[in-house]
């Protein structure tokens, strides 16, 4: 009897095991063959969305890097180009201009600032580069907006024994030339304006244009200077500016007289009239016309 019960128990257990095995096999088969269900589950897990986000992030990073690279090919605009090119020219001509020398403090910074304030020129930044040569007497080089860049020869001011007021008037005259763009108009290249403020990424930048500007600086400063028309324009501007200030106007007349005398008696400055024609003519333009009685 016992053996029969054990026999039935064993056969029952094995039968149940088989039945279980079959069910499990069927469940596995359902899972492994039904990929669509799995795919839907995965999709619902936002994995593809995440992958897209990562890819988008990579593209944005790449674009930012490219944008940064493109910006390095920018050309400065008119407001920043001129100060740079003037400084570059001055640096390249250090041996001719002789600006790297030890000199006393003439107190020009404070005096000229006050002088400009008196005339109503406010918030004008200036830098004066003193030169130890008579080759270049005085100039205003192009600079950024509301900034002035002056060259001033120490031997020139010493030989005429100019006062601070006379020096300031001389600088003011150069400042007027700058406001009239007289120097800039002589050195600007016809293609330069179209380049300033642009970008030359994947393009060839024609350096002949910029080197041409530097060459023209040489020509204006050392050879050609300004013409009579330009001198007349600036003299009339000065007359208008100083007309109400008798002391300043008299100092301007005296300055022109000193320069006229210097040009006539000093061989070192015989070519001054080539650059700034001519102090005598300027005096005649400033003097009132004689009335016929």
């Amino acid at each position: 009897m016992k053996f029969v019960i054990i026999f039935f128990l064993l056969t029952g257990a094995s039968f149940a095991k088989e039945r279980l095995g079959e069910g499990k096999k069927n469940t596995d088969a359902e899972i492994f063959t039904d990929f669509k269900a799995i795919k839907e589950v995965l999709e619902n897990d936002q994995l593809s969305n995440n992958a897209q986000k990562i890819e988008k992030g990579r593209v944005t990073q790449r674009d930012k890097k490219l944008d940064k690279e493109i910006k390095t090919y920018s050309i400065p605009g008119d407001d920043q180009f001129w100060n740079f090119i003037s400084e570059l020219w001055v640096v390249k001509n250090v041996s001719k201009l002789k600006w790297n020398f030890e000199k006393p403090d003439y107190g020009l910074d404070e005096y000229f600032a006050n002088f400009m304030q008196d005339l109503g020129y406010y918030e004008v930044k200036f830098k004066i580069l003193l030169l130890d040569t008579s080759l270049v007497t005085h100039f205003s080089l192009p600079s950024n907006n509301r900034e002035a860049f002056f060259l001033l020869s120490v031997p020139f001011i010493r030989v005429m024994d100019l006062t601070k007021l006379e020096i300031s008037i001389l600088l003011l005259e150069d400042y007027m030339r700058g406001k009239l763009d007289q120097f800039k108009n002589k050195v600007v290249h016809k293609d330069l304006k179209s380049l300033l403020g642009k970008n030359f990424y994947k393009k060839k930048l024609d350096m002949k244009i910029f080197n041409g500007v530097l060459d023209k600086y040489n020509k204006v400063v050392f050879e050609s200077g300004f013409n009579f028309e330009e001198q007349f324009a600036v003299t009339k501007q000065m007359q208008g500016m100083l007309h109400g200030k008798l002391k300043h106007f008299q100092a301007y007349m005296k300055l022109l007289g000193k320069m006229s005398s210097l040009v006539k008696r000093n061989l070192l400055y015989k070519d001054y009239n080539k650059i700034y024609p001519s102090p005598d003519l300027q005096l005649s333009w400033l003097k009132p016309a004689k009335k016929v009685p």
Partner: peptide, 10 residues
């Protein structure tokens, strides 16, 4: 080397 300055508004 620059002698630098600026005119101010009073």
């Amino acid at each position: 080397q620059f002698v630098m300055g600026s005119s101010q508004v009073r």
